[in-house]
Design a protein around this nucleic acid. Sequence first.
DNA 1: CACAGTTAAGTTGTGCACAACTAAATGACG
DNA 2: CGTCATTTAGTTGTGCACAACTTAACTGTG
Lengths: 177, 177
Amino acid sequence: MTTTPAPDPAVQDPVQHPVQHPVRDEDFLRLDQQICFSLNAASRAFGGVYRVVLKDLGLTYPQYLVMLVLWEHGELPVKKVGEHLRLDSGTLSPLLKRLETAGLVRRERSARDERSVVVGLTDEGTALREQALRVPRRIAAATTFELDEILELRARLDKLTNALDAAALDETPGCGA
Amino acid sequence: MTTTPAPDPAVQDPVQHPVQHPVRDEDFLRLDQQICFSLNAASRAFGGVYRVVLKDLGLTYPQYLVMLVLWEHGELPVKKVGEHLRLDSGTLSPLLKRLETAGLVRRERSARDERSVVVGLTDEGTALREQALRVPRRIAAATTFELDEILELRARLDKLTNALDAAALDETPGCGA
DNA sequence: CACAGTTAAGTTGTGCACAACTAAATGACG
DNA sequence: CGTCATTTAGTTGTGCACAACTTAACTGTG
């Protein structure tokens, strides 16, 4: 039930695919075969832990990510924040507005380029970093993983993300023209 | 820049933590040190690929997951669907209503237990499975991972999810009483 | 300078996740 | 039998992700 390698060479449906793979499409369609589901589940399980841990800071997880970027890089235009987090303005604009309302962040139009809005930390936002320092260890403890195990998993996930991004580009209709 | 084990024993802030770990909190707070971010990124990258692949079927990814459960198990009460997918009625009720509107599922109150609503496939919903059979392979191809690599990653992720769920339980305030 | 093309934020609309709540049905127990 | 706790769906409200669009500012070229 947990691994199920099932390299069954007997293909049931020779019509659509003239054999070539040792695994049937039917097997692949099982929920517990979908890597994406495991990924999704893990991501949401993380969400639950972060929700608890970040409640003290008054942050959601995406807000915490934005704060991480600002603590690490200081002032940044919205565009740059989005590049670090793979988020666009459609997500960031309302999120940053909420952080501004919370008094953690300040937003002002760049003088050099009036299109750009520079996001910076308020004193309160800077101060919050002290409390945030304790977060990663609590999260790491919740995983029960050793550090090297975490590093390896992260490497695999990053490799996966790169592959998927590349695939999304040439799967997108209107890119072969 | 990529791994940074940094087992630096020189702790900068001896006040809060009387040493004990070889890694400083500061290091852990870097964005590229957060597994959760890699996980989140991978999950969203998958989302992008699924969005493209599932467009032909007229399904979103969560809707696809519900269909997977129904194709595999047939009729199920909403509660059971939620158990398979770790989703509650707050998410499923509107989602199932959309699938019903799309003509893929049918919902009816159970006669035996009037609280329960049984979700089943329409003929159209059953027929859609044929097209869905091609999906997993396209996704697997997009990952560029070998099957055994996928299996191993999935095993790690499931282990992680279990650990996080367990941690969420005893982190939740009001469980030690 | 004029103007087409590009870029940065923001807005709108849809859908998902989840907490908190409501309503209705069921089950257990005195 | 009546009452109360539990179970099951559904609703409401908040926040995130993303596509599609708008607006304003910049850039390059003739």
